[in-house]
Design a protein around this nucleic acid. Structure first.
Lengths: 297, 297
DNA sequence: CGGTTACGTAAGCTGAGCTGATGCTTGACG
DNA sequence: CGTCAAGCATCAGCTCAGCTTACGTAACCG
């Protein structure tokens, strides 16, 4: 019978690509991971890995084994969840990850509700970009986290994660009120404007570029800002245009015009596959859903 | 994350009922099993076991955990199967369990075919009573085995095992030709006869008693014989009547009359859940199916 | 009430698996 | 095309998880 710890290393290697990264994720030395994967391969009796340049790549058999490993790990996660439910559930700590605007809007409401209903629960919030969420969940640095799911940026579903829908927001084009908006396709009308987008590497950045590309132009980027309040302030000051989701526009500063786009931003609550029945995870998901409903009401 | 070895011990405890039996199945000392289960309970944080007399019983939480364990173990078995397929499959040894009449009739045909098609495969046949099959499969003393599935003796499906149908046979009442058979319900006509049944504890024994009970009488048992050739010989000698399945009556000895009953004996090929895709297991199942078709043709 | 059966605990030993050091191969860079 | 850093594999050595052995205790049985 295969060793689950080794299977987990193999699965993480499939994601992370290098033994060094896996070892770091597990706080082992690379040597230990190398030895364990060698042992796994030995008892499998088939080549699972092969050198590819100075890294290692999985063979097709290795990939197939990873798919089985996902099933095993999800089942173990589910077992953990029922145990937590049996314990009364509300003990321990839950680490929640969210993007900044949610931390400002949804999280406070949800945290207050959770603290009231489950006083034993220790909640720990981490602000991070959605692109880093999957790794953080898989690496067990987070238990619950918010993800974005733009229709224009398809993201392939991660077999190690599960999620439920939370929000469906309109995305606005924020323009200076002085800007001549001709009423046609709002994005095209801003094709020559100075753009304010997220810093490269963030999801916001790729979404903005992608939306412009679909509208048939490449935006001239003048500013990078991840904080939407900052974006709105820049827009109000007449320094450019940018995309702002519904959640981030509490009260827009004067001098900003918001034009709704067809682009929508969907937010999902993600967690490790199998942990959905964990009472603490389930409570967080419920609380976030209630908070979303309240904020949007 | 829970330890799979410990989960396996818990699952086996759920089946076997005592730590001593589990320890024997794993060739450990009872002490080791006790310690491991205690550790599992400690890291679970919930009571999984409790003393019941001088044995231990699972709490409801323990039972729930066992159900998760079944999923985990089946997934690991499936992983093993794909690895075996990647290896080329035909290596290693397959241990086949079967009841005596199948060993005489089906197995030789199947073994010849398997040896021809998969020369690398080492086949090991064990004769055993179907009642012992589930334990032997779970305990990994067998890989593939034949089970009976009588409609009149319902057997609850084992979550750790999977199976496919193989045979559906008529069961005959074997009577001395001198016996006055009145043409009515054959079993009732034999209610005052001397009965030849299997030794207590075997499936044949319980099936015979059960069939008689359904016919409204309790048979007077004169002989215990598990070998159907022996049963037929006794019947021919006028020493009693007995039930004989179709597979066991090659050419009945003279002086024996066979009356078909409505009772049917269904045979299934069983294996550990998840191992069905193991190429060696699949090859055995196919070969047994072909042998069954050939023998019945 | 002894005898047997079964589980739990204590003490001690062994090997799986970790770290740290070293060497080899690959790709990048001037 | 030489040099350097990144990355993996291997070796030696040590530590602790987990086994066995030994013993104590509670429950059923005659």
């Amino acid at each position: 019978m295969l060793d689950v710890r080794r299977l987990r290393l193999l699965r993480d290697l499939a994601r992370l690509g290098t033994i060094a990264a896996v070892s770091e994720a597990h706080t082992y030395t690379p040597s230990a991971v190398s030895q364990q994967l060698a042992a796994l391969q030995r008892e499998a009796g088939v080549r699972l890995l092969e050198r590819a340049g100075r890294r290692v790549a999985l063979t097709p058999t290795g990939e197939a084994l990873v798919r089985h490993a996902e099933v095993v790990l999800a089942a173990l996660e589910a077992a953990d969840a029922t145990l937590a439910a049996a314990r009364g559930g509300l003990s321990g700590t839950v680490r929640i990850g969210a993007y900044p605007s949610a931390v400002r809007t949804l999280l406070p409401t949800a945290l207050v509700a959770l603290a009231r209903s489950h006083p034993g629960l220790h909640l720990m919030v981490t602000e991070l970009d959605p692109v880093d969420v999957p790794d953080a969940l898989r690496g067990r640095r987070l238990d619950v986290a918010l993800l974005h799911d733009y229709d224009i940026v398809p993201v392939e579903p991660d077999p190690a994660l599960d999620s439920t829908p939370l929000l469906d927001e309109t995305v606005y084009l924020a323009l200076p009120a002085t800007h001549a908006y001709d009423g046609a396709d709002p994005l095209r009308s801003a094709r020559t404007a100075a753009w304010i987008v997220g810093t490269p590497g963030t999801l916001c950045h790729t979404v903005a570029l992608h939306a412009c590309e679909l509208a048939g132009f490449r935006p001239e980027v003048h500013h990078h800002a991840d904080d939407f309040a900052a974006v709105l302030a820049l827009v109000a000051a007449g320094h450019g245009v940018g995309l702002v989701p519904q959640l981030a526009v509490g009260q827009p500063p004067p001098g900003v015009e918001l034009v709704p786009l067809t682009v929508r931003r969907r937010t999902r609550v993600a967690f490790r596959r199998g942990s959905g029945d964990h009472p603490a995870v389930a409570a967080c998901v419920r609380a976030l859903g209630a908070a979303a409903a309240a904020v949007f009401a």
